[in-house]
């Protein structure tokens, strides 16, 4: 069963492009990554799904219901955490979470218990005023208000900003637990490694259009890494002339290149080099689009 289904979903803000002809299908029980650089249209897609903004054309359904006509019924089973969280500064955390819970038809006691459980898990003081919380703690409030009613669909729009690594890990663990219990997750991010950790399938959005939907496994196999080497001797360009290397730059004793392929091939080559230091990092998304999707773009 498809939990989310969009058909040629398009949104223009006046003349400026939001998203164009987005076709997306998220099936029940999957963790679906939604990745793209800032301004690509991730938030626009999500806000359209939530009914915060209205589509210019196309359609979208969640649980088989049209998002433009059945918003409240859909959102009964949706938990949402935006990238930036803003709440009522004059409220205490517990009052905000109770206010949030009051919108759902589910058993209030069960939600209240879950609020307490999640607050303990994330070490959040429920008695504090929202205004007195750090940004990271406000984000924790966001997680709790989004998950307290045990939604069937969890929509996360770049949710990890402001969370320290330990909390991020707990959060990801919690999401996996929710997924095992049956929740479907739409996870938007511009950080590839986050999506790799969590998702089954990923859609890549660029300039308002989805350019590729891949199994995360396939993406990993084809993923490009940036290598930066610091050598004792002046580098010899011919040593790096192996399949999968691109964007090669040699400056004095430094070498930088992108590599896509079996990692063993590159380590064999590195073993022959007299290294002072080396760094392997994920290329940013722009680089992925430039190199990994060069062919698709040309087509």
């Amino acid at each position: 069963m498809n939990v989310i289904e969009t058909t040629k979903l398009t949104k223009y803000y006046g003349k400026s492009r939001g998203i164009v002809d987005v076709d997306m299908t998220v099936t029940e029980g999957e963790i679906y990554g939604f990745i793209g650089p800032n301004g690509a249209g991730k938030s626009t897609t999500i806000r359209t799904l939530l009914g915060l903004i209205h589509p210019t054309s196309g359609s979208a359904t969640i649980f088989g219901k049209d998002v433009t006509t059945s918003g409240p019924a859909i959102r009964e089973e949706v938990g949402y955490l935006p990238s930036e969280v803003f709440y009522y500064d004059d409220m205490r955390v517990i009052d905000l979470l109770r206010y949030s819970a009051s919108f759902y038809k589910k058993d209030r006691k069960a939600i209240e218990q879950r609020i307490k459980h999640l607050a303990e898990l994330f070490d959040l003081d429920l008695k504090k005023k929202i205004d007195d919380l750090s940004y990271g703690n406000k984000k924790k409030v966001g997680i709790i208000q989004g998950l307290a009613h045990e939604p069937k669909l969890i929509i996360l729009d770049e949710p990890t900003g402001g969370l320290d690594p330990l909390i991020q890990q707990q959060f990801f663990h919690l999401l996996k637990e929710e997924n095992e219990k049956g929740a479907t997750i739409l996870f938007s991010s511009h950080i590839l490694s986050e999506v790799q950790k969590l998702c089954d399938r990923v859609a890549i959005i660029k300039d308002g259009s989805i350019i590729k939907v891949e199994q995360i496994k396939t993406l990993l196999e084809n993923s490009t890494k940036r290598f930066k080497l610091e050598l004792v001797n002046m580098p010899d360009a011919s040593a790096f002339a192996i399949e999968g290397v691109s964007d090669l730059a040699l400056v004095n004793h430094s070498v930088s290149f992108l590599y896509r392929g079996r990692i063993n091939e590159i380590t064999k080559m590195l073993a022959g080099q007299d290294l002072i230091d080396f760094l392997v990092e994920e290329p940013d998304l722009e680089e992925i689009f430039m190199h990994y999707y060069q062919k698709e773009d040309v087509q």
């Binding site: 806000r47 939530l50 009914g51 915060l52 918003g71 409240p72 019924a73 859909i74 959102r75 009964e76 949706v78 949402y80 935006p82 930036e84 969280v85 803003f86 709440y87 009522y88 500064d89 949030s100 919108f103 759902y104 038809k105 208000q145």
Partner: peptide
């Protein structure tokens, strides 16, 4: 103005109610 609309209207409530 306070950017709480994203919180409120992501809840199961219609704008008219």
């Amino acid at each position: 103005r306070d950017r709480t609309s994203e919180f409120l209207y992501a809840k199961p409530v219609s704008r008219s109610s």
